[in-house]
Nucleic acid binder design. Structure first.
Lengths: 218, 218
DNA sequence: TTTAAAACCGACCGTACAGTCGGTCTGTTT
DNA sequence: AAACAGACCGACTGTACGGTCGGTTTTAAA
């Protein structure tokens, strides 16, 4: 049973690094010391390894968010939205391999034919978009977020915006880390209803406890 | 020579649909009617097919942008930025397979070891980000874009934002087409320096000539 | 009409791959 | 101590893959 976790760990790295087809069972044996037989003892196929990883990513991501939301309170919907996006970017750094896997073309292709895969992907995306949407709705009620767009659309725009930066990071395009504060600023601009208060005014310059992306700007 | 273009066309679709490793030479022969020998007569390896496609995408994308910029004039940097983003989303729809390829993990991995691949990717990204940056700088000069962020950072944020939506579209996540106008609105919010004029005020509600994403909302 | 280059063909080759299977070893239950 | 279960092993199998090569057909220049 010890080897099983090692296999999952190695497969996560290899799949995210070389893609599903680009990674081989042979590499997993080398990385884990487990024999081929062991791998197919624990998982009935290469595909099942991927599915298991996706399930782990799902529970990990949703679990992390649930905990974050339990431990934090927010004055306004806008503040909460900023916290959530910030935490999303932080998580993307913490679970980098998982996020790359989530974003890989093959994963989305597989979801079209594999119900389990689709279930996990949908669970993740729906959880996030719903959370974004609810938070925006709250912000629209308390007046911190503009009301001239539907919460759903704003949620999708913000989600795709945040995800865009995650892609940048995954592919080491430019210095995505240095864009962290700029992205939060932009999200505020997108949402803000009235005369913007600067972030310095609002919260005395303190950053969120988790620190956002790992390599933030000075 | 007729078969060569057929091979490129088929490979573009197969690579973008199944990934580089997921697509096989055998499938290309089936789709094109060309024999294996023919394929390797025109391209020395499977990888060279991909490289050639990337070169085509590069020249196609840059050529399309050059033409668009020649044929259009803009009152302000902000207007121009909106036009460019709009055209970028339009192109992403027109050259969907090419964009998917551009975004695929394997392509970025290959760029790390293959100089030609790196060259084409860099040419594309640098062209776009530079264009974004110059346009924003112009907008900051003419006062249409806020000056409290560097053009470079704003360019990267906008680029990753637009790309985020392109990913959404590629993976058929939600209805990305319906987000087209919302995205342009958001980009304006990110950039705008002063009291926003609504897009209806600005240009009488006329959409750009190319029509943006194919399935825009009503 | 000869000649040559280039487009095209498909049988063939070596290999790397996912998955199998008969078996050993270890810990637990009875 | 017998019986069982499950973790673990690695040689083996079939095959699908990228790439080769000797050859034929097409094109077009000389």
């Amino acid at each position: 049973m010890f080897k099983k976790t090692a296999i999952l760990k190695a497969a996560t790295r290899l799949f995210s690094e070389n893609g599903f087809h680009g990674a081989s069972i042979g590499e997993i044996t080398k990385l884990t010391g487990a024999a081929r037989g062991t791998i197919f003892h624990h998982f009935k196929s290469k595909e099942e390894i991927l599915i298991t990883i996706l399930e782990e990513v799902k529970t990990g991501l949703i679990g992390a968010f649930d905990q974050y939301l339990e431990e934090n309170e927010f004055d306004t919907g806008l503040d909460m939205m900023e916290g959530i996006i910030s935490f999303y970017l932080y998580l993307a750094g913490q679970m980098e391999d998982g996020f790359i896997l989530l974003h890989q073309h093959h994963t989305h292709k597989l979801a079209e034919v594999n119900p389990e895969c689709r279930e996990y992907l949908e669970a993740i995306y729906n959880y996030l978009v719903d959370l974004f949407e609810k938070t925006i709705a709250r912000g629209q009620e308390d007046g911190s977020i503009r009301r001239d767009s539907s919460p759903r659309k704003l949620a999708l725009i913000l989600f795709s915006t945040a995800d865009g930066l995650v892609y940048f990071r995954s592919y080491n395009l430019y210095d995505a880390g240095a864009l962290y504060t700029e992205l939060l600023k932009s999200c505020r601009k997108i949402l803000e209803s009235r005369q913007p208060r600067t972030s310095r005014d609002r919260r005395g310059g303190s950053l969120p406890a988790h620190g956002g992306l790992s390599n933030t700007e000075s």
